[in-house]
Amino acid sequence: MSGLNRLKSRAVGGGSEMVEIRFDKEKCIGALRCGECLRRCPQAVFRSYPENRRRGEICDEWYLAPTYQVLCTGCGICIEHCKPGALSLIC
């Protein structure tokens, strides 16, 4: 799909044509242990979130979500650099 068509489909809300990042939590080793995707994404699409947080303790389970996915260009840099292979792209 050409860039122009993609823009048009976004404008009319045809969301199905958008690039989608799939994230496999089972494979991810944690954003603070690795964080390659967070640091390398040119659009800074990712955001990390702590899980099972408890008052008074430091949480070391931080996973990610492609929160700003609407800004994703589908360049694939995150996938190239994801060592555990937790990310994939659906175009």
């Binding site: 976004r10 809300g13 969301g15 199905s16 958008m18 955001r47 979130y49 979500a65 996915q69």
Partner: peptide, 22 residues
């Protein structure tokens, strides 16, 4: 500081992907 994982903006962005303009 406790609500970083429950951030409202994130939920909304997530719900809108794929989004409708309106």
């Amino acid at each position: 500081a406790a609500t970083v994982e429950k951030d409202g903006a994130y939920r909304i962005l997530e719900a809108l992907t794929p989004f409708k303009s309106e």
